[in-house]
Design a protein around this nucleic acid. Structure first.
Lengths: 148, 148
DNA sequence: ATTGTTGCAAATATTTTGCATCAAT
DNA sequence: ATTGATGCAAAATATTTGCAACAAT
């Protein structure tokens, strides 16, 4: 556990959003200015295989990282791309239903599943749409942002 | 609908696996040798926004494409990375359960979800593991292949 | 003429890797 | 000494884009 690795882990843990490697790099760089991107990526890999963090696939080009390795669900915002945790408690009926349903699939050779939600994040849901003329629809999963 | 676009669509439709842009390019190139990768990507985009094909995010670095735009589920093979359709009929109880569960989430501002399964594809499930000594476990979703 | 599409090449973006050096056993 | 980790730069990968030429209205 080198200083670099510790700081990288701390920054993933402190991040409230689910940061990209680049965001982590920028934060770590404030504390260790000479750190390199390669070190960040290498340590994110190591921390992942240690089970300290999880790698999330947001459906966009960049990977995101999460220090919460417990089972929970993510919401990808169709407007801004932010990922946040879905506010469902592990005990809720929804999860039971899903677990039960998922269990039925083992007969097909399936032993895992991943569920992602799409909608508006807590920030965007309270923000009026930007382009007032354009009737810009919120995008569905398979239509990640085209504009820039 | 240019010849290029038609051929690209045909190749996505003919592919039984869920091909990557590169695989599509290689196939199209056999019929239109001078086609360029840019044209393939541009047309995959166009075809997607026409609703003719879907873009799948396999959790790996390359996008994959699917001409089946109807709702269905995918299994990503944890051993070889292949994507195949989950042999669940739309009417099966499992899907109903899931739909019901998913519907309960609208109160959180969630209007869509995507479910992916992980397991062994029909090919790998009938193949003995390769490395006999290494106890090489099948990998879980968040642990895409590390070896090469 | 205008519009949209192509092929090509160059650019972009993200992630990975080679390598000499450094740090800690 | 050996081992593993670092910083740096270069490479690799996947995708996107600028542009001149082409095709069809």
């Amino acid at each position: 556990m080198t200083p670099q690795r510790r700081v990288i882990l701390e920054e993933v843990e402190d991040a409230t959003n689910h940061p990209t490697a680049d965001e982590i790099y920028e934060k770590v760089r404030k504390r260790i200015p000479r750190i390199s991107m390669g070190t960040v990526y290498r340590n994110l890999d190591v921390l992942e295989s240690l089970g300290a963090i999880r790698r999330l696939d947001s459906g966009r080009s960049q990977m995101r990282f999460d220090c919460n390795t417990k089972e929970h669900y993510h919401l990808t915002c169709t407007r801004c791309g932010r990922i946040e945790d879905v506010p469902i408690q592990p005990g809720e009926h929804f999860v039971d239903t899903l677990e039960e349903a998922g269990g039925k699939l083992t007969k097909y050779g399936i032993f895992g599943y991943q569920l992602e939600f799409f909608g508006l994040c807590s920030q965007c849901i309270n923000t009026p749409k930007e382009s007032p003329e354009g009737e810009e629809k919120d995008r569905l999963p398979e239509d990640p942002e085209k504009d820039s």
